[in-house]
Nucleic acid binder design. Structure first.
Length: 498
RNA sequence: CGGGGUGUGGCGCAGUCCGGUUAGCGUACCUGCUUUGGGAGCAGGGGGUCGCAGGUUCGAAUCCUGCCACCCCGACCA
C-alpha cells in the first residue's frame, strides 16, 4: 500500500475515491457503475443493517422478500411512477444464450425472446402492491408493515462508489393502512427512525423535512427526508419516507371492506435507506489520514499493536495483549490483536488509521515493565505531533479508559459534525447573497421561496442549488422570495447536493 | 447523449510527437540476512499477447483505419 491519500483541500473527490479503496471498503467492478463491496466495507454495512433492522422490528415491522424481476406491465400501472423510473430501468429480454457459430463465444439466442420483458426492480412498489391486492380484503387484514433488504438497479448516467451505483443495496419498507392518518403517522415515524439512526449511530446530524413537489418520489403524495451536510459543503439526501396516499392502491386496485361494510382504497407508505449511507458516513467524519468511524458502527473498535524485538518479547507482549483483549471483549468491546509479524508497528499504525479503527493500543516491552499501555484515539491524529491523542494508561484502568474514550468519541465526532453544519448554515435574504454564499462558503442556505416549481427550477438552473427540504422545525418566519419577491411563509433549505 | 481524457507486469506511470538493441521506472510481490515505540534497509528474484482487429514497413507500444472499454466534466438520480 502506497503512502497517504490526496488531501481533502486539494481534491475532495479524489480524496473520497482513494479513501474508499485504501481503507479496503470497496472497488469498482468490471461492469460500469457497479461496485464490489469488500469484507471490511461490508462489515460496516452489516453493523448499520443490524441496528436499522432492530429499529424496524421495534416499531412493529417484519421482513419479507419479493422478486428481483418485475413484469413490464406492472410498472406502467402508476403513471407518475413509470414517468420517474422508466428512463433508468434495466430490461431482461431473453432467457438463453448459445454458442456463436463463428466460435467467438456466446451470443443471445434470438429464439429465446421473452413474451413480456422483465424489468430489474428499480424499487418494489409495483410488485409489492400486486401482492397486497391478494392479501387485503378486510380492515382486519390491515395494517401490513413490511420491510425487505434487497438490491435494486437504476441505470444512472453517472455513478460514484456508494453514493450512486447502478446496483445498490438497500432496505425498502412498504406499508398498507386503513386510514390516511395512520399512513401519515407511519411515514413520519420512519423518517424519525432514520434521523435517530443517523444521529445516534452514524454521528451524522440531519435536517428533517419534506421535499418540494418537484423533488418528490415518483408516485408519492408527500416525501419526507433527512438531509445531511458533507465536509465539502454539499448536501446528501440520507433517507426518504414517502406517503403514497392511495396512488398505488388505485393503480393495483387494492381495496378493503371497512367496519361499515363499505369498500375503501388502502393507504400506503414506502421508505428506504441504501448503501449511500456508507458514503455519508465516510464523507461526514473522515480526514486526510483515512476513515474515521463512529465507535458504534466500527467493526473493530480497538486494535492492539504489539511492539517487540525477538520471539521472547513477542510472547510476553502477546500474553498481555490477549489478556487485555479478553477483558475488553468481556464488556462488549470488539478487539483485534494485530499479531502479524510481517509488518512493522509504524505500518500497522498507518494501516489501522486508514481503516478508521477508533482506539489503538500499543504494547511493548517498555509497557510490560511499567504496567502500562499507550492508547491513541483516531479522531485526533496529527503527523506533526505524534503525541496528540495519545495517553499512557495503567493496565488496571484500560477497560474503563477504553469504554470512556469510545463513548467520548461517539459524542465528539457528532458534535464536530454538528458544529460544522451550524457554521455552514447561512440565512440569506437576497439572491445576490444567496449566490455568493453558495460559491464562497457552500453548505446549507436558508432562504425564502415563493413555493412555485418555476422559481425552484430557475434557481436550480442558475446556481445548481436545489431545495433539499422544507424543514419541519418550528423556526418559521414569513418573508419574501429571494428570486421573485413574492410572499413566503417560511425559509426553506437550499444546497448544492450529491 | 454532448465535451474532454486514458488504455503499457497487481497498482501508479514513462516511452508514442520523430518506428530501430533484450519495453523501462516507482510501488507491490517472492527468497535471504539485518531490523521492529510512526509507513525498514541491503542483496537476489519472478511477473508484459503494450485495449482489440486490420493495414503500412525489412522492422510497430510508436504511423494509418476501424472498433471496444473505462475515467473526468455537464444534463438525470437514493
Amino acid at each position: 500500500m502506497s503512502k497517504g491519500i490526496t488531501k481533502r483541500s486539494e481534491d475532495y473527490s479524489a480524496w473520497y475515491n482513494e479513501l474508499v479503496k485504501k481503507a479496503d471498503l470497496a472497488e469498482n467492478s468490471d461492469v460500469r457503475g457497479c461496485m464490489v463491496i469488500k469484507p471490511y466495507g461490508f462489515a460496516i454495512w452489516e453493523k448499520m443493517q443490524a441496528e436499522i433492522d432492530r429499529m424496524f422490528k421495534a416499531t412493529g415491522h417484519s421482513n419479507a422478500y419479493f422478486p428481483l424481476f418485475i413484469p413490464k406491465s406492472y410498472l406502467s400501472k402508476e403513471a407518475d411512477h413509470v414517468e420517474g423510473f422508466a428512463k433508468e430501468c434495466a430490461v431482461v429480454t431473453h432467457y438463453r444464450l448459445k454458442n456463436a457459430e463463428d466460435g467467438s463465444g456466446v451470443v443471445v439466442d434470438p429464439d429465446a425472446k421473452l413474451e413480456e420483458e422483465l424489468i430489474v426492480r428499480p424499487t418494489s412498489e409495483t410488485v409489492i402492491w400486486s401482492s397486497y391486492k391478494k392479501w387485503i380484503q378486510s380492515y382486519r387484514d390491515l395494517p401490513i408493515l413490511l420491510n425487505q433488504w434487497a438490491n435494486v438497479v437504476r441505470w444512472e448516467m453517472r455513478t460514484r462508489i456508494f453514493l450512486r451505483t447502478t446496483e445498490f443495496l438497500w432496505q425498502e419498507g412498504h406499508t398498507a393502512h386503513a386510514t390516511k392518518e395512520e399512513a401519515e403517522t407511519e411515514t413520519i415515524q420512519m423518517m424519525n427512525v432514520y434521523a435517530e439512526f443517523a444521529e445516534n449511530f452514524m454521528a451524522v446530524p440531519v435536517i428533517k423535512g419534506v421535499k418540494s413537489e418537484s423533488e418528490r418520489f415518483a408516485g408519492a403524495d408527500e416525501t419526507y427526508c433527512i438531509e445531511a451536510l458533507m465536509q465539502d459543503g454539499k448536501a446528501l439526501q440520507a433517507g426518504t419516507s414517502h406517503f403514497l396516499g392511495q396512488n398505488f392502491a388505485k393503480a393495483f386496485d387494492v381495496k378493503f371492506l371497512n367496519k361499515e361494510n363499505k369498500e375503501e382504497l388502502v393507504w400506503g407508505t414506502s421508505w428506504g435507506v441504501s448503501t449511500r449511507l456508507m458514503g455519508a458516513l465516510i464523507m461526514a467524519h473522515s480526514d486526510d489520514h483515512g476513515l474515521v468511524l463512529p465507535p458504534k458502527l466500527a467493526p473493530i473498535q480497538v486494535v492492539i499493536v504489539p511492539i517487540y524485538k525477538g520471539d521472547e518479547q513477542f510472547e510476553a507482549v502477546s500474553a498481555k495483549a490477549n489478556e487485555i483483549k479478553q477483558a475488553l471483549e468481556a464488556v462488549g468491546v470488539s478487539v483485534k490483536y494485530d499479531n502479524r509479524d510481517t509488518y512493522k508497528p509504524g505500518f500497522k499504525f498507518a494501516d489501522w488509521e486508514m481503516k478508521g479503527v477508533p482506539v489503538r493500543l500499543a504494547l511493548g516491552a517498555r509497557d510490560l515493565e511499567n504496567g502500562t499501555v499507550e492508547m491513541a484515539r483516531r479522531d485526533v491524529v496529527d503527523p506533526n505531533n505524534r503525541n496528540a491523542g495519545k495517553k499512557v494508561v495503567n493496565f488496571d484502568e484500560v477497560v474503563a479508559e477504553v469504554q470512556a474514550t469510545l463513548e467520548d468519541m461517539q459524542q465528539g465526532i457528532y458534535k464536530k459534525a454538528l458544529d460544522f453544519r451550524t457554521e455552514k448554515t447561512t440565512k440569506v435574504d437576497t439572491y445576490e447573497e444567496f449566490k455568493q454564499v453558495l460559491d464562497e462558503k457552500g453548505g446549507f442556505v436558508l432562504a425564502h421561496w415563493d413555493g412555485t416549481a418555476d422559481t425552484e427550477d430557475k434557481i436550480k438552473n442558475e446556481t445548481k442549488a436545489t431545495i433539499r427540504c422544507i424543514p419541519l422545525d418550528d423556526d418559521v418566519e414569513a418573508g419574501q422570495c429571494i428570486y421573485s419577491g413574492q410572499p413566503s411563509a417560511r425559509r426553506v433549505l437550499f444546497a448544492r447536493a450529491y
